[in-house]
C-alpha cells in the first residue's frame, strides 16, 4: 500500500489567485488576504466558572479575557469575545498540528468546555483606504473609527451568515485593518460577495499569510 499524504486544503484554495481584481485604474482601495495556519479553540465557561476561566485564559495566553465584544491581542494570539461565557482563542499553528485541544485540556478541566474550531472557520484580513466603504455593503455594524475603535469586535451576520468581525491596529498608511472570521463552508460564497462589494474600489488580493 502506498503511503498516504495529507495535504491541507483551505476552503478558499480555488477561490482566488493573488493580484489585482475589480477596478484597476488607481491604487487598490481594498486589500484582502486569507490568513491560514491558525488554531481556533472555543472556550465555553461552565456554570459559575467565568472568573476561573478568565484567570486560566490570562495564565495561558498572557492577555486579559474580554468580557464584552472585544478582541484582545497578545504575543500568544488573540482572545476574541464570541458570546456570553464564550471566548475564541486564536493562535498560530505550529507545523501541521491537528489536536490543539490537547495543550489546553488540563488548564481548563472542569471549568470550561472546549471545542476545536480551527477548521470550522476561515479567517480574512481586510484593509485599505476603502475597507469601511466596502464593509458597509455587507455589514450592518457601524464601523466608524470612533464607534468601533481598535480592539472592538462584533459577533454579527454577513449575507445572513454568522461572522466575527474585529478591528486591529491601523496599517502604516493610516488605513484601517479588519479581521473577519466566517464559517468554512460559506467562505467561497462570501469571498465572491466581498469581491463584488469591493470591486469598484479596486482590490489587491494578497498571498495567503500566517497569523
Amino acid at each position: 500500500m502506498a503511503e498516504f499524504v495529507w495535504h491541507a486544503v483551505s476552503p478558499l484554495q480555488h477561490s482566488f489567485t493573488p493580484g489585482r481584481m475589480g477596478e484597476t485604474a488607481d491604487a487598490a482601495g481594498v486589500r484582502m488576504a486569507e490568513i491560514r495556519n491558525f488554531n481556533l479553540v472555543q472556550i465555553f465557561a461552565r456554570r459559575g466558572q467565568w472568573s476561573a476561566v478568565a484567570k486560566a485564559a490570562k495564565a495561558h495566553f498572557g492577555v486579559e479575557a474580554p468580557t464584552r465584544p472585544q478582541a484582545v491581542s497578545g504575543k500568544a494570539g488573540v482572545l476574541l469575545w464570541s458570546g456570553p461565557d464564550q471566548l475564541s482563542a486564536l493562535t498560530a499553528r505550529r507545523g501541521d498540528e491537528i489536536r490543539p485541544l490537547d495543550a489546553l485540556r488540563d488548564r481548563f478541566a472542569g471549568i470550561a468546555s472546549l471545542s476545536d474550531q480551527s477548521d470550522g472557520r476561515c479567517l480574512l484580513r481586510i484593509s485599505g483606504a476603502r475597507a469601511r466603504d466596502m464593509l458597509a455593503k455587507v455589514s450592518s455594524v457601524d464601523l466608524d473609527a470612533a464607534v468601533f475603535p481598535v480592539g472592538a469586535a462584533a459577533a454579527t451576520a454577513i449575507d445572513h451568515t454568522a461572522a466575527n468581525l474585529w478591528r486591529e491596529a491601523d496599517a502604516a498608511d493610516g488605513s484601517p485593518v479588519f479581521k473577519l472570521l466566517v464559517f468554512s463552508s460559506f467562505a467561497d460564497s462570501l469571498w465572491d460577495t466581498l469581491v463584488d462589494a469591493a470591486a469598484e474600489y479596486g482590490i489587491e488580493v494578497e498571498s495567503p499569510a500566517g497569523l
Binding site: 465555553f44 456554570r47 461565557d85 470550561a112 471545542s115 476545536d116 474550531q117 477548521d119 470550522g120 468554512s184
Partner: peptide, 13 residues
C-alpha cells in the same frame, strides 16, 4: 443545567 453547546458542522469532513 450546566451544559454548553457549540456547532462544529464545518470543523469536520
Amino acid at each position: 443545567l450546566d451544559v454548553q453547546l457549540t456547532s462544529c458542522t464545518d470543523q469536520w469532513a
